[in-house]
Design a binder for these strands. Structure first.
Lengths: 124, 124
DNA sequence: TGAATATATGAGCATGCATTCATATACTAG
DNA sequence: CTAGTATATGAATGCATGCTCATATATTCA
């Protein structure tokens, strides 16, 4: 058992070689944060429902609000989040703003996540 | 322009047919919540780093703590979250508990998310 | 048995976030 | 220009969550 060489914590090491290997493999802080931010965008039921509603095609804000049964303001705030992460696209037509799915990766993430969720039989 | 038929909000509809279609396509509340919970598990830099560290193979709690440079308590709390969502597996050997990746969907989600993040050139 | 070590966990705290409310902006119609 | 409508957004609020600290549990070793 080897004493930790990190000054950040006083934890002991079980397998120093594995730790070094893991440190090399592990995502750096910045990349981990950006990846976490992406998943964070999908980590809310309202945003998930918005994205699944946009599957049928572009929808304007008020139709999205009606579809979800939520206020225009709440939907608009969430669309801002989705837009900032590049998951939805805007198209303005007069005073109506249409939103649609922007990223092809989203569909992959979405279906893969759904597959995971639907294969879970023991979830509460 | 048709007045909304939902009593939940007083929003007007632009395209009632699209709204009905979107309502049929949209994930139901329960499924959306479970999907959001899954993504929530990946929506934290610490958990992302833990999962990417476990890519090299199973690691015990204190080696994970050393790898991330964080306290044993913080890591243990996060591992609990990951375990409850079925993303990591436990193996106890004496007083040491080894964790490893549990779900094959995780790797898919992970790499797809990474691909998204790495193709973004305009992110801050 | 008793000391040491690895892990788990409850409480407390600080921060983040989803919604509401009020209001601002932008466009259209008259 | 004025009224009306669609959307955006800042402030406030209630709730969730990540970390620390202290401590409990479990296992090993002497």
């Amino acid at each position: 058992m080897i004493t930790g060489e990190l000054d950040l914590c006083e934890v002991n090491l079980i397998n120093a070689a594995m730790v070094r290997q893991a440190q090399g493999q592990m995502l750096d802080e910045a990349t981990a944060t950006r990846l976490a931010d992406l998943f964070q965008a999908l980590a809310d039921p309202t945003r998930v429902r918005i994205l699944s509603a946009l599957w049928v095609g572009e929808l304007c804000v008020c139709d999205l609000a009606a579809t979800l049964g939520m206020s225009q303001s709440a939907i608009s705030h969430q669309l801002r989040t989705l837009r900032q992460l590049g998951l939805v696209r805007r198209r303005k037509d007069g005073q109506v703003v249409y939103y649609s799915l922007d990223d092809e990766h989203v569909s992959g993430l979405f279906s893969q996540g759904l597959e995971h969720v639907r294969h879970q039989t023991d979830m509460p």
